[in-house]
């Protein structure tokens, strides 16, 4: 009996040790990075790992004064806001249409939209780049918003259609008896009921658009309209990288997502998981 307890105790301790090792593997790189933002370049070389002498905001101040970080922050906010808005609006409309359609048309449209989840985005970027140049939409945030929307609509339709198909038909029929048209049904029944999955999609889209590098890299060339991840690339020096400054920028980019994650973990985890499950 005692031996058995010992065995389970040893097992539990070993299990916790493994879990804590993983926790440290996740947290330590972020901690080292965060400490570096309070050091000078020479301070970092003298003591790359330790606590900073003081939590001076010198690097953050330089970031906003000399590197115009406000502009890039604003650019990212504008692009993300409009992209997420149009993703939610358009995919909920499509999902509603598909879930209400009779016959095979709905199923075929669903297949056509979700096909986009199988095609890697890299495949279409070159023709897309040419198309956007011809339309005069390259080098514009509007162009980026349109493309971000087009790329995330498949996942949006996938998540929302699944949910809207579960809305009881009797509910819709009752509303129609009272004279509601399709728009009313969408606006007053389908959308409010689907709110949890709309929230999941919103968080997912927010994270993807905010962190996206590929599409801004493709479309935004002019410095004043760049988004944060794109600006971040510029901090990498050819020979010597100013890590304290670079990492301050990393913190600035990450803070909005981290704060949201702390409060809305459930939606993050649901959103990313829903986005990864295909067919």
């Amino acid at each position: 009996m005692i031996r058995l307890d010992l065995k389970t105790f040893a097992g539990k301790t070993f299990k916790q040790a493994l879990l804590i090792a993983y926790v440290l593997a996740v947290i330590l790189p972020f901690t080292v990075m965060f400490f570096a933002t309070f050091k000078s370049m020479s301070g970092l070389f003298q003591d790359p790992l330790g606590l900073p002498d003081s939590f001076k905001l010198t690097n953050y101040i330089e970031l906003f004064r000399k590197q115009d970080m406000f502009i890039y922050f604003k650019n990212s906010t504008v692009v993300t806001f409009f992209s997420v808005g149009s993703i939610l609006f358009l995919s909920s409309l499509v999902a509603f249409g598909i879930s209400r359609m009779k016959g095979r048309t709905g199923a075929m449209l669903f297949a056509f939209f979700t096909l986009g989840m199988m095609i890697p985005s890299q495949t279409s970027i070159i023709p897309l780049f040419i198309l956007m140049s011809k339309l005069g939409l390259s080098n514009s945030q509007l162009g980026l918003v349109l493309v971000e929307t087009a790329f995330i609509i498949p996942i949006g339709v996938f998540i929302l259609t699944g949910f809207m198909r579960t809305i009881p038909q009797e509910m819709i029929e009752a509303a129609q008896m009272d004279g509601a048209n399709e728009w009313h049904v969408y606006r007053r029944i389908a959308l409010p009921i689907s709110l949890p999955s709309v929230a999941t999609l919103a968080i997912f889209a927010l994270m993807i658009v905010w962190n996206n590098l590929l599409l801004p890299l493709l479309l935004l060339k002019q410095s004043s309209i760049k988004t944060l991840p794109l600006k971040l690339l510029e901090f990498k020096g050819e020979y010597l990288t100013n890590y304290p400054l670079l990492f301050s920028a990393v913190v600035v980019i990450s803070v909005p997502m981290v704060v949201l994650y702390v409060f809305l973990q459930r939606y993050f985890i649901e959103g990313v998981t829903a986005g990864s499950i295909k067919g």
Binding site: P127, L128, A150
Partner: peptide, 23 residues
């Protein structure tokens, strides 16, 4: 119902599917 689908369909086809096929 097509009216609900068309805006998303156009955007998705134009900026995602057509470029992919053009590749």
């Amino acid at each position: 119902l097509w009216l609900f689908i068309i805006p998303g369909l156009i955007l998705y086809s134009f900026f995602f599917i057509i470029p992919a096929v053009s590749s």
